[in-house]
Design a protein around this nucleic acid. Structure first.
Length: 277
DNA sequence: AGTCAAACCTGGGCGC
DNA sequence: TGCGCCCAGGTTTGAC
């Protein structure tokens, strides 16, 4: 499930390959993946433009084009962006292919077909539904302890649900939410406003630390995630709780428990993650 | 404001 | 072997 570290890893793996390339053709195999413009317009506005830069906002990959447009890619659960030869046989789940002048192409492959594409003028981010009201980047200077404390103050919702809320902070998904809460020693079902100052500080630190480590280890490959070169990540080997039901907690050895919080599969160490401060 | 469920999809894992 | 069922996940939408 591509969250911030996975999208950042894809971005880094693709920069050297696609920046400067000119798009000579676009194939659309799943029309409904294009969200905000008709297919013909999408293709027409892309063909002939060059890729200037790759950016990221939360879980969105942003392809900046010489035309002044930006292609915004959201991979949702199973989306992949692979830099491969243009003449490769099309995969069953290929949603779109962006072909370059050098015979290579960016293949957007997505088994579950939830991934989506928006084409907008640079800066018109609110045209991308999932970017409307998006919160600060957790690794930026904007994301301070003070910001987090204020965002959580007076909120009765469960802390895990709020970490997954992209308008509070951008880029955290189920894996990194569970890992952050484990490191901070906070139970995911705690009401957000019940966290004391020390806990908010600890959570802020844990979020940044886990995301930075996730990037350093090139993301978490549980099933479908691979970077732009098709390489798996390595952070799955360092997960403390996510996906480790009944396995020993790396800190205390207590078996990790799987439950459901905020409607999501949730892993905790019942000894390390306390319900009350 | 919050929580919950459904919808979007497909393949994997399970029980029988 | 194979069927039917449930589940995973990010986001949007709608209901209570």
């Amino acid at each position: 499930m591509p969250e911030l570290p996975e999208v950042e890893t894809i971005r880094r793996s693709l920069i050297g390959k696609v920046v400067g390339r000119t798009i000579t053709a676009v194939e659309v195999h799943l029309a409904k993946a294009i969200k905000n413009v008709p297919e013909e317009e999408f293709v027409h506005r892309l063909v002939g433009t060059a890729i200037r830069e790759l950016g990221r906002r939360g879980k969105h990959l942003i392809v900046y084009l010489s035309s002044g447009d930006a292609l915004v890619v959201h991979l949702r659960m199973t989306g992949q962006l692979l830099y491969l030869p243009a003449d490769l046989r099309r995969h069953k789940h290929t949603s779109a292919v962006f072909i370059f002048e050098n015979g290579q192409a960016l293949h957007f492959v997505d088994q579950r077909k939830f991934g989506c594409l928006h084409l907008v003028a640079v800066g018109q981010w609110s045209e991308v539904s999932s970017m409307r009201g998006i919160g600060p980047e957790p690794l930026s200077d904007e994301f301070t302890v003070k910001y987090l404390a204020q965002a959580l103050a007076g909120r009765s919702g469960r802390i895990k649900a709020l970490l997954l809320d992209q308008t509070l902070v951008a880029g955290i998904g189920n894996i990194y939410a569970d890992e952050s809460l484990f490191r901070a020693g906070i139970h995911p079902a705690r009401p957000a406003s019940s966290l004391n100052r020390t806990e908010v500080e600890g959570l802020h630190h844990a979020i940044r630390e886990v995301l930075a480590e996730g990037i350093a280890h090139r993301g978490t490959t549980v099933r479908d995630y691979y970077d732009g070169e098709g390489k798996a990540g390595e952070f799955q080997e360092r997960l403390a709780v996510y996906g480790r039901g009944n396995l020993p907690c790396p800190r205390c050895g207590t078996p990790v428990v799987r439950s459901r919080v905020a409607g999501r599969g949730t892993y905790i160490c019942p000894n390390c993650q306390v319900v009350r401060p």
